[in-house]
Nucleic acid binder design. Sequence first.
DNA 1: AACAAGACCTGCATGC
DNA 2: TGCATGCAGGTCTTGT
Length: 273
Amino acid sequence: MPELPEVETVKRAIGPLITGNQITHVFVGRKDLRWALPVCLESQLSKAICHAPYRRGKYILIPIGDEQTLLLHLGMSGSIRIYPNRPNLQKHDHFAIGFEGNGWLVFSDPRRFGYIDLFANSDITSHRLLKILGPEPLSEEFTPEYLSKKVEHKTCSIKSFLLDQTKVAGIGNIYASEALFKAGISPKRQAKTIKGKRAERLVPAIQVILKKAIEAGGTSLRDHIQPGGEIGYFVQSLQMYGRGGESCPNCSAAIRVLKQSGRTSFYCGICQR
DNA sequence: AACAAGACCTGCATGC
DNA sequence: TGCATGCAGGTCTTGT
């Protein structure tokens, strides 16, 4: 489900509830998410103070106390909700934290592709899931020059390349399709051909799409909701994703659907070359 | 080494 | 109505 904009939306929404707040209750339901939850999660978190959450790629990171960090990944179907008072937990609510002042944070994930970990702050740069991530697409590090360099000799499609979190961290299936449309680049194009003018179009296209999606609270298709219960409104701004057979907003040609590396791509065969 | 396909898991829409 | 099928915002693991 969640790509960078959805995760960023969640991070921003939970900040006011958890920052500087002390944990009073910890609930762990099913421990078999994508991987088994860390042992003693309850006792490790109990009574600790949470600090300001931040995001890396599609991961939410919450400093706990002085020495540890809680890592959350929402997988395909995960969501985080917040409540002013203790909620009645539902079937797929696998993890929940209660705070001083009665606020609650609930992690829900029907498909259980999500993941929760707790690790020492000293391991932040060596954590197996974090250390492989490429730069943030909204950072100064992600430039046309960086992209041109990384795609060298890559014969895979640019669409598959953009989904590789080790190259750039946070882009998923929706925003890859949207950004390629905005840049006028075919998802089938070999990655190594994205240099010069094409790279100069694609990098800002990615950045504009992601920023607008964040402003809209992300894209709600099936599972994504903002922690306060609001949906994400960027779904109304999607030009390609999920619109197979509809007319291209630019040239009116039928939007095409394609499978690449097991993922569906949507594109305009006229506007994207 | 690089890439594509498979696997993980549940819920929902569709069609017979 | 019931059942089978296919699909879904991710990504690690396996196979070619």
